[in-house]
Design a binder for these strands. Structure first.
Length: 746
DNA sequence: GACATATCTAAAGCC
DNA sequence: TAGATATGTC
């Protein structure tokens, strides 16, 4: 056996040394997936004589790509020549090599969601559509979905023809595509779609890449969508050397297009495929694994597998039902303190609170700061989403590609230069009438002069600034250009004049951004290349997350279950184990959605190395209302034998003790009916008693409803509090009970 | 264009 | 409840 492969277990070793033919590595949580993949690449290069240039490894996130690159570098010394990239950047790279064949001009730009939104907004105006009925976000998601299915505007129109509202959507989609084409721009979905089309329509280009990439690897294969599948399939068609790594149990992104069938049907899609299961877990203690398994095994659509560990049984899973959401947070804070007192080796960064929705974070922030516990919240907000950064990026883009209308619209009045909605409106119209890009229109002196004096002046100044930068740009470093933009556009001056706390922090961010550029330049220089503006822009647009999780900081981590995928912590808390929160009310009566929630639960549980705490709150304030909650179905699915002795279920609601649930109940198809009815509460004045299915209810009365189940009407602080048990625990019932009255904090 | 007020809505977020 | 967005007023 080769020395560096010695650390691998037999399955990992086999996976790392199987190079030819289709290979599916089913890598369970904590099974050493990345190590296996990187060793596989190392083996190719060090022992199998594979040319690094013939390796293509794709991941979903920049973080994953960076990690893979780093670890391969450690093993092999260099990643030179290999394509270790995200799906999007790999596609972009192919498209940059053949823009014309893909139907674009050389300097095409990549639009982000903000640009998309501004385009859709413009189109809504143009078509005089109601932005409420056609919310930009909704329109964008429709378009995105269509593109992920490789459905163009024409087919979209045909497919949806006749249905109310779809006519307009089809028109929007069609025009949206035309705008992008005219602006020489692609959105994120285009990157994959156009790359696939490029290969589909150009046999030579396809053959070139098929020959070039003799060895393909795909990480997180369970998250691939139809287009990504097509891409991989095409590239692998000739040689079949395709290795995909993934875990169907961790497919938690179906809602954004991931198609779990890709991994489930890999062997069908790639005949002769070898399947290797990595089932030895190196992360969690046995009780935790057992608990996670008892949950995930309820899913039907999954590949049979079971993680095991050599580690001790460890601590049982703890469950705590708090009285309300505040107490739940206090409890978690208290537990962190107590555990750290007990075990001095624990640091804050050993703890994570993983919640289902971002709104839950607030309570934990409050509770942790009250106790003086340092924490960091990993929110969806990203560094490059900051306005000032986006603005400067838009300037850069416009300088590179003057046809970039979305970029221009973004910054034409940023900083304020008197070019408000009205001027923008007429510019847009002019451009539309003349079929030109905004910049082309602006370059026409006559047109600009036809605007009111002040406006014309501003426009001239704007055009000449951009134009000047466009010309100078060729002989400038990225950093110099950045400075020039800040100064010549008046952006920096405007901020300085504001002189507020906010503008100060913006300036700070802008300065911080300079170090990002410097770093990138250094990086490139080390590899003997120079950082061109184009390359820089590219990397930035596709760089979504600057890994805002800083593991070096000793803080408790607060994040959603989704963003926890791939991470691990000694002690994990999963709060909000309640019907409606987790599983989310939106999925409760949908089998598919429910399976995904269950996978999410599995992902969350398997993040824990040593201890896992699940909590729920009896009363929870949500959307301004306080409601009685019921415990999550998932709690009942965890095998009792791995739960800590002091786990108390529904200690306050009589008749709902844990023992009543048959945790081994067979998993059945159809709507998920929780054995435990959930409770909705509403308070009205005594003379405004709610009726339930035509029945008048009064305080203290037991009620029964064939659909909603049994419940009791109880009395709270003088007025009637109607409590209804509902088999689904969804908001549907709330509607049935309207009008609802607010329930004050108990 | 800035600011105040009204209204609406509520999951997750990779590139 | 809280935030985002739309609308109103100066």
């Amino acid at each position: 056996m080769i020395d560096y492969l010695q650390k691998l277990n037999p399955q990992q070793y086999e996976a790392a040394t199987t190079l030819e033919g289709p290979l599916l590595i089913l890598a369970g949580a904590g099974s050493g997936k990345t190590g296996t993949m990187t060793h596989r690449i190392a083996y190719m290069i060090r022992d199998a004589g594979v040319d690094p240039r013939s390796i293509l490894a794709v991941t979903f996130t920049n973080k994953a790509a960076a990690e893979m690159r780093e670890r391969v570098e450690v093993l092999v010394g260099s990643v030179q020549g290999m394509w270790i990239q995200t799906f999007h950047s790999a596609c972009l790279r192919m498209l940059r090599l053949h823009p014309e064949q893909a139907g674009y001009a050389k300097n095409f730009v990549v639009y982000d969601p903000v640009d998309q939104k501004s385009i859709i907004k413009g189109l809504l105006k143009e078509l005089e559509l109601d932005p409420k009925r056609f919310a930009p976000a909704y329109v964008i998601s429709e378009i995105s979905n269509a593109k992920e299915q490789a459905i163009g505007p024409g087919q979209y129109r045909r497919d949806t023809g006749g249905q109310a509202g779809y006519q307009e959507l089809a028109e929007l989609y069609d025009r949206y595509e035309k705008v992008l084409k005219k602006n020489n721009a692609m959105d994120f979905d285009d990157l994959i779609l156009r790359a696939v089309q490029l290969l589909e329509n150009n046999q030579e280009i396809l053959s070139y890449f098929q020959k070039k990439f003799q060895y393909l690897m795909v990480d997180e294969y369970q998250d691939t969508n139809l287009l990504q599948y097509k891409l991989v399939k095409m590239l692998a068609e000739q040689h079949g050397n395709i290795c995909v790594v993934g875990d169907d149990d961790q497919c938690i992104y179906q809602w954004r297009g991931a198609d779990i069938r890709n991994i489930l049907e890999f062997e069908k899609d790639f005949p002769g495929a070898k399947v290797i299961k990595l089932e030895e877990n190196y992360r969690s203690s046995a009780y935790i694994l057992e608990g996670a398994h008892s949950v995930i095994s309820r899913n039907r659509g999954r590949k049979a597998k079971k993680l095991w560990t050599r580690a001790d049984k460890g601590e049982k899973i703890q469950y705590y039902r708090a009285s309300d959401d505040k107490e739940e947070a206090r409890y978690i804070g208290g537990r962190i303190e107590a555990l750290m007192r007990k075990d001095p080796k624990l640091t804050f960064s050993d703890f994570a609170v993983l919640y289902r929705t971002n709104v839950q974070s607030r309570r934990f922030e409050e509770a942790l700061s009250a106790k003086g516990i340092p924490y960091q919240v990993l929110s969806g907000l990203r560094y490059y989403d900051r306005k000032e950064i986006k603005d400067i990026l838009a300037y850069m883009r416009l300088v590179v590609n003057p046809r970039d209308d979305a970029g221009l619209m973004r910054i034409i009045n940023e900083p304020k230069r008197g070019l408000g909605a009205k001027s923008q409106e007429s510019l847009r119209t002019l451009a539309a009438v003349r079929g030109q890009n905004l910049m082309e229109v602006l370059k026409d002196r006559e047109i600009v002069d036809s605007f009111p004096n002040k406006t014309a002046e501003s426009l001239h100044a704007f055009v000449s600034a951009i134009d000047g930068l466009h010309i100078e740009q060729a002989n400038m470093s990225v950093l110099d250009l950045y400075d020039a933009i800040l100064v010549k556009t008046g952006y920096l001056t405007a901020l300085e004049e504001q002189n507020t706390v906010e503008s100060d922090s913006r300036i700070e961010n802008l300065m911080e951004f300079k170090s990002v550029i410097t770093e990138k330049e250094k990086e490139k220089n080390e590899r003997g290349a120079t950082l061109t503006l184009e390359i820089f822009m590219e990397e930035l647009t596709l760089l979504a997350d600057v890994d805002n999780h800083d593991p070096r900081e000793d803080t408790v981590s607060l994040m959603t279950l989704h963003s926890a995928k791939g991470l691990e912590f000694s002690v994990v808390f999963i709060p909000g184990m309640e019907t409606g929160i987790f599983p989310s009310y939106r999925t409760i009566d949908k089998g598919e959605g429910m399976e995904e929630e269950r996978r999410l639960c599995y992902v969350g549980m398997t993040r824990a190395k040593k201890m896992l705490f699940l909590t729920s709150a009896e009363w929870r304030m949500l959307y301004g209302k306080t409601e009685l909650t019921s415990e999550s179905l998932f709690l009942k699915e965890i095998d009792r034998s791995v739960m800590g002795g002091d786990a108390v279920y529904d200690k306050k609601s009589a008749g709902t003790s844990f023992a009543r649930y048959d945790t081994k109940a067979p998993y059945s198809e159809g709507p998920y009916v929780s054995p435990l009815a959930s409770i909705k509460a509403t308070r009205g004045k005594a003379d405004e008693r709610q009726t339930l299915a035509g029945k008048d209810v009064v305080a203290g009365q037991k009620v029964h409803h064939e659909k909603f189940g049994a419940g009791t009407v109880i009395d709270a602080s003088g007025s009637v509090l109607t409590v209804i048990f509902d088999a689904h625990g969804t908001k549907k019932l709330a509607k049935d009970l309207a009008p609802m009255h607010k329930v004050e904090d108990q």
